[in-house]
Design a protein around this nucleic acid. Structure first.
Lengths: 216, 216
DNA sequence: CCTTGTGAAAACTTTCACAGCT
DNA sequence: AGCTGTGAAAGTTTTCACAAGG
């Protein structure tokens, strides 16, 4: 890659697997912080993660030299770096569509608390729910997606509607400006390539388990 | 790999990514079945899956020649083959530990219905829940794990307890005979290597989205 | 003739091993 | 002296391209 200043810069593509591990590191570091220690070694962070210290170091190396040779990593500094890299330093606005059993479990999900994550607004079709406030989140009519999402500049959405409705909802979300979707509906969403979809497919995960367990 | 009969058999390791895709194929085939068609092409199955036809064919090829050249795949036959491969031809017994919001959402999760999947028994510590029957599943005292799991020969468990309790529960499950765990607690479980753990980490998935969306 | 099944090439990810900094 | 950062090697997965067969 030729730059303006005539130096050659090697373009390093960041593996997607690396991105997925960053949040694990962040969680572990937040736990380590409780112990009061200031620095931590790559071997300590990865001890209980089924990840090698080399992989941890290589993962971080894509984002610069975040540690100190001979010393390790400053916990607070690295937490801040990871939060910035992951884009959660400022609370990201997240919409949730479908306040059924699964959706309402996510509204108050305690696992989000440590990471500046929180559902910002929720949508449903059920007149019995619309207008109510659950877990501090007001439930809006699903028809308001295309006004509220652009207005609030929301970029991320969680889909917890029945499978048959998921594709339609997803298109509506994308047309309103959503760029990333966490999809719990057991269906493959067909959306423009620049939209990132992460599927959480619980039936599929269980079948992966049954496959492996069957062979024992 | 040298065999008794003196023929050379090439050992093909089945990629884990292949296993994960099998359940997607199964779901798609079950949808295709509704249309009444008898056969389906690899290009048709993968059309809405973000998977190439070549990958589909290679994935299946690990399990034999399941299609017909020039014709495609017989839908019913392939469904049966995949159900057998995945180990869901007979309903697998699944235990669930932690009947909180998320846990109870899974008790009646409609996404399991098409795949012979169903929570078989549930455990909790809450005296207000123990003994009750939710979604047709009786909730037992968590102290009964080590009697009921071996008695019923249950091999798969879902963990939906708070993070702090997950490691202890997991060890108890493994000691009772559990071989595969679907873990929703945001913590890395340290268990013997022969135990398969699949983590569903919703905070982590959202952070993966914020990372990508931030860069747009 | 059409589509599957599959070696071989390409792409991607992890592990290794050690140079380099503090 | 000790731990990080990182090219290079090894390992894994996907894509390519075409042989094989109904």
């Amino acid at each position: 890659m030729k730059q303006n200043n005539n130096t050659i810069v090697k373009k390093k593509k960041i593996p997607f697997e690396t991105i997925k591990r960053l949040s694990l590191y962040l969680r572990t570091l937040k736990n380590q912080k409780q112990t009061g220690k200031e620095n931590v070694l790559s071997s300590e962070i990865t001890k209980y993660l089924n990840i090698t210290p080399e992989q941890f170091r290589k993962d971080l190396s894509y984002f610069g030299s975040l540690g100190k040779k001979g010393v390790g990593y400053n916990i607070n500094l690295l937490i801040g770096n990871l939060e910035t890299i992951l884009g959660i330093y400022e609370e990201p606005k997240i919409a949730l569509v479908g306040v059924g059993k699964l959706g309402s479990a996510l509204l108050g999900y305690p696992g989000f608390l440590n990471f500046n994550l929180k559902v910002y607004c929720a949508f449903d079709t059920d007149l019995g729910k619309i207008g109510k406030v659950w877990e501090g989140v007001k439930i809006e009519d699903i028809s308001k997606i295309d006004t509220i999402i652009p207005e609030q500049n929301i970029k991320i959405a969680i889909i917890t509607v029945p499978a048959d409705f998921a594709q339609g909802i997803a298109e509506k979300l994308v047309n309103s400006g959503i760029k990333g979707i966490l999809n719990f509906a057991p269906v493959n969403l067909n959306l423009p390539k620049d939209i990132l979809v992460r599927n959480v497919d619980m039936a599929s995960e269980l079948m992966t388990l049954t496959y492996i367990v069957k062979k024992m």
